[in-house]
Design a protein around this nucleic acid. Structure first.
Lengths: 341, 341
DNA sequence: CCAAATTTGATGTACGTAAATCAAAAAATG
DNA sequence: CATTTTTTGATTTACGTACATCAAATTTGG
């Protein structure tokens, strides 16, 4: 049987009240006594029964998710997953709030972080915009004792406790190898469609992609990046234009959102061309395009996993508990037409 | 605030004791009264606080995992993940036992199932051998009210509550497309190494593989399946032999375990040949082979995820609770050398 | 050494549920 | 209608922890 507070009290030769004071870091315990108790805790391998503790405390975990107000399928999906988690609040003892801030606007994000911090939630998850001010604001939250996880896009160099998202450099590298291998030894040009080089995840994907391409597939030449602003119309225009004036293009890597436009352009301009196409994010549009052969592979991050992982990690950090690392690693999903969920 | 048993009692106009009798299906409640209580439960949307209930009951979940005694890395990994779960028993209220049975031996598995059933555990997870007797034995457990999940290899047509493993037909199809695309339009022969055609997961992988190959890559000809019994020595012998006497082989699909032997054969016999190789299961050996280029892609199922999922599902079923389907879907991981964890 | 401050102990209540006991009420039976 | 049987209510204890209160013991300061 696992030890309880009573066992600790007995082992340390103190009363239950004193054990309680130590466990919940309440004042009024002499240093030596505190040490006796802590020794007993270690010796017996005591771990607090979180379920019982939460019951006694009537604890709920107020969590805040800060998302960019972007109108694309991926963000909608992320939002939906958070709402699904909200629906489970009762059984998971969470009280989740979603706040939206203008996209790509570090100052707005910083202001929101300050507001959220004032409410002292049990944890904060945010889709980080990569800027020094944001990093500083996150660090302030962490120093105030508020667990923080970044979601989808990381904030390296900050003190955030955890990143719930894929390794975007690895994603770019993987895209490059798939494209290179699918093209056999062919020689030609590769078009790259991104959302914006201002967001870290897109920059990292490109970085990984370019690295593997340069090193392993020298016969393939990368054209300069087309920035589609994650907007289907812009993407359509850019891709249609590129295909129109360059018939050396044999492959396309779409590393951002707005794939609806890309797909439309392909159907209009490339029916008779053998193009190999790799895109990111599984949506209704990309799924259909994968099935009909317009797209050859889709790289995806599972928003549901990211949200559930973020919640698990925030709760664990709030309780000072360990997490199962392997469980919280967000994988890069690779979908061909055969393994769609 | 979510409703408690007290609220139910008040709403139904009965006492706490009666609510308790209904909730825990104890006898001594008239039909009409039971209905009143059940109506109140539905109306208020009551859900039992599992944490509090488990605390009161001092509940632990005795779970039994039945595994084949196979000496290969995948099974060792699976075993390790179960032991990791055992280490978390205290906090997860589980009491997990592992029993091993001879591999590919339906009768031994049936006998073990009977023995396990007699112990009335809260749940049973098994790597199923696909045989009518096994199916019948599993169905008996289910009818006795014991939750059962199949692990890694399914038992379709049985009453098992859940399958914690990948879709093996999809895995085979994916392998075929990857291999076909990687080989460009080349013409040649494909060797297939399986463990045994007696296990469903291997049969299904082969089925999916052969289907896509036939339909989409007619230039590639499949050789007849080599059964390596998931044994590295046997696998080595078979592959070395095949490569020795057939130099039309340009690709290999290894859909079972025992890849250590395959890799050794490749390094001995195929240094000068351009073979494209796809294998299953990420282990220390296959990982190294992927990195050094001996293997081109690895399809993997995450044993840790499977074990954790099986445990979550068994606990939920034991409590009659719902599971988050998306969370329990085991994905097929595709690893290239760039996205290794 | 005494008073004040600090530390510790003892005890009780609470969280939401399970389970048991005994009494009371209601229903079924003859 | 009386008796038996079934159903229901009321109450208590327990699970492991949190938290509050008050008293008692110990330490500290002057």
């Amino acid at each position: 049987m696992r030890p309880t507070v009573h066992d600790i009290a007995a082992a340390a030769g103190v009363s239950l009240a004193t054990v309680d004071r130590v466990l919940n870091q309440r004042p009024g315990v002499r240093h030596v006594t505190r040490e006796k108790v802590e020794t007993a805790i270690r010796d017996l391998g005591y771990v607090r029964d979180v379920a019982a503790a939460n019951l006694a405390k009537g604890r709920v975990y107020p969590l805040t998710f800060i998302l960019p107000a972007s109108d694309n399928s991926f963000m909608h999906g992320l939002n939906a997953e958070i709402r699904a988690a909200i629906a489970r609040s009762a059984t998971e003892r969470t009280d989740i709030r979603i706040v939206e801030v203008p996209a790509f606007d570090p100052q707005a994000l910083v202001r929101e972080l300050e507001t959220v911090a004032a409410e002292k939630p049990s944890g904060v998850a945010l889709v980080a915009t990569d800027a020094p001010d944001v990093r500083a604001a996150v660090d302030r939250l962490v120093k105030d004792g508020i667990p923080v996880v970044t979601l989808v896009s990381d904030l390296t160099g900050s003190l955030r406790h955890h990143y719930a998202g894929v390794d975007n450099i690895a994603a770019g590298r993987t895209a490059a190898r798939l494209l290179g291998r699918f093209l056999g030894g062919a020689k030609g040009e590769i078009a790259i469609l991104a959302g914006s080089m201002l967001v870290r995840d897109h920059r990292e994907r490109l970085e990984g992609f370019a690295a593997v391409m340069a090193q392993e597939f020298p016969a393939l030449h990368l054209l300069s990046v087309l920035e589609g602003r994650d907007d289907p119309e812009v993407a359509h225009m850019l891709i249609a234009d590129a295909l129109g004036k360059n018939d050396g293009i044999i492959g396309i890597y779409s590393l951002g959102a707005g794939n609806r436009g890309l797909i439309r352009a392909l159907k209009e301009k490339a029916v008779d061309r053998a193009l190999t196409v790799i895109a990111h994010e599984l949506t209704a549009h990309t799924r259909a395009a994968l099935l009909d052969g317009t797209i050859d592979a889709i790289l995806n991050q599972d928003a549901g996993h990211e949200v559930r992982s973020a919640i698990r990690v925030l709760k664990a950090k709030a309780d000072g508990l360990a997490v199962i690392d392997a469980q919280e690693r967000i994988r890069l999903d690779i979908f061909l037409k055969d393994n769609l969920p």
